[in-house]
Design a protein around this nucleic acid. Structure first.
Lengths: 350, 350
DNA sequence: TTGAAAGCGCTAACAG
DNA sequence: CTGTTAGCGCTTTCAA
């Protein structure tokens, strides 16, 4: 037996030989078959089938410089990010859209700054065509680490430092937090409320700041005074903030919470104090997190964002960036970021 | 300007030229530097540093046939798998251990049988060195699809069909469900209970069957009659099963639930009926899911499994398989599966 | 339309 | 210990 090889995977060459054509022709057929006469196409297809040929990825990448893979970078500090339904939906969107683009999702789980080196090496090594990262805290070095690898990247959520000092322009996809907040408060105003308070999210997260801005946009001296308490996007912080608000302004008649979790905390406190929702105090949340907003009593009126859609958009943006970079334009040409619209969902709380 | 090239990534060649050595030497240094004299090593290192050289992945893979990447295959049917704390821990273990082995985690999200083709192509294309998959329902075609690609694979959880008819032997990592169940029931027996019931998990999941077997092992005619109700691993199903059990055997004095979720459902029913736990009915769960077991009232006595450890083990097993396959042994040589021990955690419910 | 040939960047014998 | 020399499997001009 001259060939003890168990089952070496067939190469282009093998297919070519079997089909009686050149490697070039096989390559053409495999890549769409444009410009090859039908009989040959058929012959090649048959050979591919019979041999069970599958193109070798590495070889292809080596010459095309394309990988068909995109990294999704997850920074661990974002605590139980996996359990976060928000995150799950976004990744689902990303995954689906990536499939459409025939690309693979490579998950990069970063447990801390100690691993930034590994990430840089991975990104720099050309394993992926681009990266998707999520808005991180302002002082994090990760964005700049990513940036230095020169791998195209799109952020999920407006990075707090976007547009800052010498910061490079980064493309990102974010919901219209400000507009959504504005709409929420206007709804409250339309309901005839005039003492509308806001429970704000953490000061180091852009989404929280944007929602606060939206609240400020809508609450004019005309509609009533601004009244803000600080929360931290958790149920407990929402409860605390609500208590504080009640102390400062016992006669408030509406609350716009920075997210559904805080709204549910606020709701609890409101009921403990014997205040009826929405009769005495109208309440609006943000996110439309199903596991929360639909299950409170009364169900929450809130602002919905298309999370899965945002994930898909991140991919589209990235793909465009990659396309652009392949062309004559230099790497700096960041395609504009995208702000997706939000929608007020009316339930019973306001 | 003869060189309009913006910033072509430096190659081995460039480093070699700069350091005044051959490509081979640079390659050696980059790959550990064994067998190269110190002065040269230093020179090369410096050149690498100055040029910001990063090895090209594709080129390396093309010749070494190794990828430094492992696929984690997730079948969507497993509903909100991301939100499942169990899953999160396992993936965390996998991710950490992969880092140790200098390998990357590639997430393959399969939304349904329609995508099996894509998966097969990906796996077959040599993108990854191996795959990790989770126990799926008995009738799923995914395992066989994976198997056909000849990519080494390790399963998380004993596949229901393992050891079946013509099924190939697949290596898997699983907790000692049977042993753990046995221990749980023996604990109940030691407590003096003699009418011990079991709420079983779904009949098509190996873990549920194994726990049932463990229960049967420990409940002998000597200790009392077997009494089993069917549940589905959810809180609600646990409650229903408990009600049924109470109907069939109002005087039962202990319950071993197939998991913590069902135990908490059972607990609720028990209290509704005015039965005290553990005084009237002792209760033991399984999993030690922190978000459940520690928060019930009373906290659940349960069986803990080292989930993150199982994730790590899956990777180690896979790495060994890959190593073996690289050697003379044929691809079929599946290294033995691993059953990890469980541990009874005593809290207040039993 | 098809084929021949030249690499992509790297590793791995094999010499020296 | 170091350099030379072949490729790994594929795409892509360039001719024919």
């Amino acid at each position: 037996m001259p060939e003890p090889t168990p089952a070496a995977r067939p190469t282009l060459e093998a297919v070519a030989t079997r089909a009686g054509v050149s490697r070039a022709t096989v390559s053409r057929v495999v890549n769409g078959g444009a410009g090859v006469r039908q009989p040959l196409v058929d012959k090649v297809r048959r050979a591919v089938e019979e041999l069970g040929y599958i193109p070798n990825h590495a070889a292809r990448t080596l010459v095309t410089r394309r990988n068909g893979a995109v990294a999704v970078i997850i920074a661990e500090p974002e605590f139980r990010i996996f359990s976060d339904p928000f995150f799950e939906q976004q990744v689902r969107g990303i995954s689906r859209e990536l499939t459409v683009h025939d690309s693979q999702l490579v998950l990069l789980w970063v447990e801390g700054p100690g691993e930034y080196d590994r990430i840089a090496r991975y990104l720099g090594g050309g394993h992926v065509d681009g990266a998707l990262a999520f808005s991180v805290h302002n002082d994090d070095q990760l964005p700049s680490v990513i940036h230095r690898t020169r791998v195209p990247v799109v952020f999920g959520g407006r990075p707090g430092w976007a547009g800052g000092r010498g910061e490079p322009a980064v493309p990102y996809v974010d919901a219209d937090n400000r507009g959504g907040a504005r709409e929420a408060v206007r709804h409250l105003v339309a309901l005839g409320r005039s003492r509308i308070a806001h429970i704000a999210g953490p000061r180091d997260q852009a989404s929280a700041l944007d929602r606060l801005d939206g609240y400020r946009d809508a609450v004019t001296p005309h509609t009533g005074p601004a009244l803000v308490a600080q929360g931290g996007f958790t149920v407990e912080s929402g409860a605390r903030a609500m208590a504080e608000l009640l102390e400062r302004r016992p006669d408030l008649d509406a609350v716009f919470a920075g997210n559904d979790l805080m709204a549910s905390g606020a709701l609890r406190v409101l009921r403990e104090r014997g205040l009826r929702v929405p009769e005495d105090v109208a309440l609006v949340g943000f996110d439309d997190m199903a596991s929360v907003a639909e299950r409170t009593d009364p169900p929450l009126t809130t602002v919905r964002q298309d999370i899965e859609g945002m994930g898909r958009l991140m991919v589209r943006l990235l793909m465009r960036t990659i396309g652009v970079n392949a062309g004559p334009g230099a790497a700096g040409a960041a395609p504009g970021s995208v702000i997706t619209p939000t929608e007020l969902v009316r339930r019973a709380s306001a």
